[in-house]
Design a protein around this nucleic acid. Sequence first.
DNA 1: TCAAAAGTGTTTGTACTACACCCATGC
DNA 2: GCATGGGTGTAGTACAAACACTTTTGA
Lengths: 226, 226
Amino acid sequence: MLKFHEYRNPALAIDLVVFGYYEKVLSVLLLNRNEEPFKNGWTLPGAFLQMEERFSEACGRILKTKLGMEHLFLEQLYSFDEPGRDPRGRVISVTYFALVNPRNFGLAAGKMANDVSWHDIKKMPELGFDHKKIFKKALERLRSKILYFPVGFELLDEMFTMTELHELYECILDISIDRRNFRRKILDSEYIIDTGQKREGLQNRHPSLYKFNKKLKQHNFNLNVS
Amino acid sequence: MLKFHEYRNPALAIDLVVFGYYEKVLSVLLLNRNEEPFKNGWTLPGAFLQMEERFSEACGRILKTKLGMEHLFLEQLYSFDEPGRDPRGRVISVTYFALVNPRNFGLAAGKMANDVSWHDIKKMPELGFDHKKIFKKALERLRSKILYFPVGFELLDEMFTMTELHELYECILDISIDRRNFRRKILDSEYIIDTGQKREGLQNRHPSLYKFNKKLKQHNFNLNVS
DNA sequence: TCAAAAGTGTTTGTACTACACCCATGC
DNA sequence: GCATGGGTGTAGTACAAACACTTTTGA
């Protein structure tokens, strides 16, 4: 009897949607391919799953070797199966999305190596394979997740002002939210803690610096925005 | 150069969590295995993905050949990757959950063929592989989904009373919900339409029969229960 | 006329919305 | 003092929770 992997099986790829937030812009990391198919076109970073490898290990491998990143927030997104999605043959793609603060990886200038760069989600180029679809699904997930889970803290510095958090929400959701109501809701939810410190050196009143409340157990908050 | 599928790839299975609701009990379809591993143990129904097959086609194949069912509500759940989850070798499992009205398939008596049967979700046996984990994830998804999506209609007859819908929600969520507030909320949401007909032959007041409003476009309802 | 379930109404409290106003800082 | 954002307060409203009461049916 054959072992399972000796049968013909579809290849299994892991593809990542890595979101970064910097200077009031939400961006995604894209790779410029240097080989066919889609040579010189943009795609999401990805790799084939190794036989003994876990999904999370493959994600870590991609993040580290292709992007130089480690220990990011990762969440499985969806698995894609269209038979024609890769012109080279049948490839199933298990996708994950990741959140990163670009400043933690020295990519703040907006560019990395020649073949990797951040792209404003509002100015996305054409993407190879079915990666546009994957990207859309990831953005949808991020937008719904941020309403009931403190996802934003992965994207900001360890300490941040209320205004920075507010701008992040408005940017991701692409809506405007009343500054004062947002503030009250976030503070009531106990997701963040006032560090007692202030951001200094600004032209006007020095805002309080907050950090994420890591001890919070219950995620009993719902940002009800229309 | 080798084709992708000529490399060693993990096998890819599709496993299904099929929920059925009948006589105020939420159940899951389980298979009694007649071969190793887990011989004579219970598992979720599943199959290996064929090379040219889509996930949804594999789901349809499992539902039809093993369970004699067709055209069910299906939604992708999650993909599982633990290297040890199948003792025979590396197998990735892409899972789906399905909703079915058992009465539509003549399974109302609670039993089917020798090796397939409904199991009350409150009296689940041990499951082979990592299927307990998959089941738990499916139940979790069902419980969260029912709060903002009219998922229940897949489980009931085409026409149903308000009380039947109410009991379904209480059963799935495993909580009690005020009958009158539930009624108002559901009616306000316009998810269901009064057919004008009544259920007759009961010992007391004849309740209205409703059906799902298929024309409803916007899913603007949120059943806020604690 | 009684029991049981269906259907309707009402009070109360909470939480969100939409605002106005004051405070701290650098210039 | 003034411009600019940060921080606080409040009236109005909508909606959900927690109730009581009436109606319809079969026996």
